Amino acid sequence: MSKSLISLSALSALALSAGLLSGAAQASEDLAKAKFCVGCHQIDKKLLGPAYKDVAKKYAGVAGAEGDLAKKIRGGSKGVWGGAEMPANSAVSEAEAATLAKWILSLK
Rank of each mutant, 00 (worst) to 15 (best):
A65R: 12
N89Y: 07
G75A: 02
S93R: 13
A32R: 04
W81F: 09
A34Y: 04
A27R: 15
K78C: 09
A51S: 05
K33H: 08
A60R: 06
S77C: 12
M1I: 05
S77T: 11
S77L: 06
A91Y: 01
L100C: 05
A13V: 10
S2P: 13
S2T: 12
F36Q: 12
K35V: 08
S17P: 01
H41Y: 08
L47P: 00
I43T: 14
A15R: 03
Q42G: 08
G23C: 12
A60L: 10
E94K: 06
G49W: 03
L11A: 07
K3E: 08
P87I: 11
A84K: 15
A15L: 10
K58L: 10
I73C: 07
L16N: 07
Q42W: 12
F36S: 15
T99L: 11
A95H: 11
G82M: 04
E29Y: 15
G75W: 11
K71H: 10
L31N: 07
A25Q: 15
G49H: 03
L16K: 02
V80P: 04
F36I: 08
P50W: 05
V80F: 12
W81A: 03
D44E: 12
A95N: 14
L11K: 09
S106M: 10
D44M: 00
F36M: 11
K108V: 06
L8Q: 09
G23W: 15
D44C: 03
A88S: 06
L100F: 03
V38K: 13
S4V: 09
V62N: 07
L16S: 08
A24S: 14
G79N: 06
S2Y: 02
A88M: 04
E85A: 15
K57S: 13
A95R: 14
K45W: 00
A88K: 14
G79L: 11
Y59P: 00
W103C: 07
C37M: 04
S4I: 05
A27F: 12
A32N: 01
G61L: 03
K71V: 13
D30A: 10
Y59V: 09
A10Q: 04
S28I: 05
S17E: 05
A10R: 03
Y52Q: 05
P50M: 05
S7I: 14
K33C: 01
L14Y: 02
A65I: 04
A18Q: 09
L100D: 00
P87Q: 01
G19K: 01
V55R: 01
L107N: 03
P50H: 06
T99G: 01
A25E: 15
W81G: 03
A25S: 15
G76V: 09
K78D: 11
L31I: 05
K46E: 02
L31T: 06
V55I: 14
K35Q: 03
S93E: 07
A13R: 11
A63L: 13
D30V: 01
L100H: 05
K57E: 12
A13C: 10
G83V: 10
A60C: 06
A97E: 01
S9F: 13
A97Q: 03
S17F: 05
L47M: 13
G19V: 09
V62E: 00
G79Q: 07
A34T: 02
G82W: 04
L14I: 13
S90F: 02
K58R: 15
E94I: 08
L5K: 15
K102H: 14
